[in-house]
Design a protein around this nucleic acid. Sequence first.
DNA 1: CGTCGACTATCGTTTCAACGACTATTGTTT
DNA 2: AAACAATAGTCGTTGAAACGATAGTCGACG
Lengths: 189, 189
Amino acid sequence: MPAPSLQHEIGKRRPFEHPEEEALLNLVRTGAALQADFARLLKSHGLSDASYNVLRILRGHAAIIRRRAAGRGKTGAGDNGAAHEAARPRGAVPSQTIGQEMVAHVPDVTRLVDRLEARALVRRVRTEDDRRVVLVSITRAGLDLLARLDKPITDLHRRQLAHMTRGELATLGRLLTKARHPPSAPIPP
Amino acid sequence: MPAPSLQHEIGKRRPFEHPEEEALLNLVRTGAALQADFARLLKSHGLSDASYNVLRILRGHAAIIRRRAAGRGKTGAGDNGAAHEAARPRGAVPSQTIGQEMVAHVPDVTRLVDRLEARALVRRVRTEDDRRVVLVSITRAGLDLLARLDKPITDLHRRQLAHMTRGELATLGRLLTKARHPPSAPIPP
DNA sequence: CGTCGACTATCGTTTCAACGACTATTGTTT
DNA sequence: AAACAATAGTCGTTGAAACGATAGTCGACG
């Protein structure tokens, strides 16, 4: 069965006037469809897209600390080397950093962290240095949840595009990156 | 300036293990970024993505009626031929149809139509035939709003992908369509 | 040393989406 | 014809996103 045309798919009665419009709609729809499956998987574990993103960021920073410590040898330098998650969490990042690294700009990290903290997936700690900032770090429970999600997510991703060849994926990636980065400045507000 | 790699863009520290994962993330992110500009344009006119979609659907159905009437000659057959928007609206569709034709599945068309009706962009009418169904049709104000949006939207779309060649757009479109339609059944619930 | 300006995070509020329960109406079955 | 199931839409409620205003804190500067 050949793939149905986009025009037919959305019940459009007139063909597209410009190839840019068709490609754009195609791109947005495809992205949304693929992400919908992803979001459904997350929701089955009680996570939204944004909250999952926060957890991933926090795990990433925790991993940095862990790698650095490992590189310096078993005995941690400077921060000392408590074996398990200490009261002073390693890999804690200010809320602001979370907001910057998120895929979708979320103007209210506080509420997001609130909900995660209520479920004990993250932890909040105030620093002595700068009492304005609140450091957020992922807890053991949060790491466990992510670990449980890793395999299903990888499987889903690979399954979603399993029917594409390596060459197609490479071409697609190249074109997407180019599409996202116009030579001129991004669209003005 | 070469396009920055996706890996660097999201602050990822490890390269992607599988090309599928990278392509997928790239696809989702690109679609979201492009749609964000679109949503911003809509919002500047007080419309959300979903409400715009509803209006487009209604206009599409109104256009069908208009085209049919024109094909049959000036004197409309069956539905009669009032010149301007009559009290009994042409091109009215049940709410259920709207829900089916929308790009994103919205489980509550009622509220969506509520808000549009409150702004006099659509109109609700009950049929005599089946008193359960509510027919929705677009008003003159709704058509005007859409008309005002048409050009900016087309411009935006073309601008967003203006730096791609025809060949690239064609290839991108083909790969996207293939990506969205795996040979196997879609991802199960 | 006190004040001003910039910054960080939180909170109040409004708006919207999602899920489910519920009412009204139609067609079907016996 | 009466009971039944199926359908179309509405409504209540919960949860989350968006926007703006606010309080607390730090650094610089007079």
